[in-house]
Computed example of a mutant assay.
Amino acid sequence: MLNTKQKTLRRFWYAIMPMEHLADGPKPFTLLGEKIVLFLDGEGKPAALEDRCCHRTAKLSTGWCKDGNIVCGYHGWEYDRTGKLVMVPQFPERQAVPNARTRGFHAQERYGQVWVALDDPIADIPDVPEDVDAGFRRIPQFYEHWKTSPFRLMENSFDAAHIAFVHRNTFGDINDPVPEQYKIEETAEGFTASVRQEVVNPAHAQKITGEPAGKTMRNMVNKWYVPFYRRLDIEYPSGLRHIIFNCATPIDDGNMQLTQILFRNDTEEDCPAADLVAWDEAIVREDKDMLECTDPEVVLDLKMRTELHMVTDRPGMIMRKRLLQVFHDNGEEEYVEGAAPVLAAE
């Protein structure tokens, strides 16, 4: 699967950037290979257009905002939030503005982020009820570029077998490489994977978890939403909840953006946000280093046998099956680049 070749992926919402990044003017972004520009309209709501002026093709992201519209920095042509050309400064008042436009895309704010769908959405942004729960605080954690594909990150997020090895310096135990198996329940949006897992709580993490150092058992409910969203609810024995919500946004076929938000049922006085970001950053960095050395192209059809699998890979195998079904339901097949190598039979 190459993300830019799968038209159905254009019909989902993706987290693009924090709303605050638009406070000082338009910003460019590449989504599924599409060059877009984001800006705030007259009501302070996000808008997304093709990053291309229909006059001389200049990037609108090099311009500025004026009364809720975006102005091209080349000749001052002005567009509204839908992409319609509304003003040409070189025309006299008696000359009508041409009936022209640059393409507009769906945009909205959610969880403090700008979300964009390139085509008419077929699913909503996943709901995180803690965002409106007064007992929880929202902590933006990561907004960064990774040289891998969204599927690799999603699959890794449910791969319990990698913890003992990739995270041996944070919370994994390399001497205990066989993880507990997830209890998986498929849903209309994806699946829920639940497990009670024994892990290591390092001494320096006691403020994070509210529990003593050493081996500990944690309840974890990990949810995957088609295509590239994940919500991990970790319940520590102390009663603290550490809820991670992330979106793996496809930039192109070999690059993605990680947007990650944390929800906690404590206060800044209990545990500073900077400490929570630092704790999760150490873990995320271990994943990033490993995933960036994998092949970003993932073949979804298990019959093609481009990769071997084991029992703990079941979540990723379900992801493959479900994405193939989504593509099929929307009238397309998986795109695979070239002839994939075939591994030896078992």
Score class of each variant (00 low, 15 high):
Ala213Trp: 06
Ile234Met: 07
Tyr225Leu: 03
Val199Tyr: 13
Arg230Met: 13
Ile174Cys: 04
Glu211Thr: 00
Gly190Trp: 10
Pro212Phe: 00
Tyr229Leu: 08
Cys247Val: 07
Pro179Lys: 01
Arg196Gln: 13
Ala205Arg: 04
Ala203Cys: 01
Leu240Asp: 12
His242Val: 03
Asn219Ala: 14
Ala205Asn: 08
Tyr182Asp: 06
Thr209Pro: 01
Asp176Ala: 13
Ile244Lys: 07
Ile208Cys: 00
Ala248Glu: 05
Asn169Glu: 11
Glu186Met: 04
Thr209Ser: 04
Ala213Pro: 07
Val178Tyr: 00
Pro179Asp: 05
Pro212Met: 00
Asn201Gly: 03
Phe228Trp: 12
Asn169Thr: 12
Glu189Thr: 12
Tyr236His: 05
Arg241Ala: 05
Tyr229Met: 10
Pro179Glu: 07
Ser238Asp: 05
Asn201Gln: 08
Val221Ala: 14
Arg218Ala: 02
His242Gly: 01
Arg218Ile: 09
Glu198Met: 08
Pro237Arg: 00
Ala188Asp: 14
Asn175Gln: 11
Thr187Phe: 09
Thr187Glu: 10
Gln181Glu: 11
Cys247Ala: 11
Tyr225Lys: 06
Lys183Leu: 03
Ser194His: 10
Val221Lys: 15
Glu189Ile: 08
Trp224Asp: 10
Phe245Ser: 10
Val178Pro: 03
Ile208Tyr: 02
Val195Asp: 08
Asn201Phe: 02
Ser194Phe: 07
Pro202Val: 04
Ala213Glu: 07
Val199Thr: 04
Glu185His: 08
Val195Arg: 14
Thr216Tyr: 05
Thr209His: 01
Glu185Phe: 03
Asn201Cys: 11
Glu180Pro: 05
Val199Gln: 12
Ile244Thr: 10
Gly190Asn: 11
Arg196Ser: 14
Lys215Pro: 06
Tyr229Trp: 14
Asn219Thr: 15
Pro237Ile: 01
Glu189Asn: 13
Pro212Ala: 00
Thr216Arg: 03
Ala248Ser: 08
Val226Asp: 10
Lys207Ala: 11
Arg241His: 12
Lys183Arg: 08
Ala205Gln: 05
Pro212Val: 00
Thr170His: 14
Met220Trp: 13
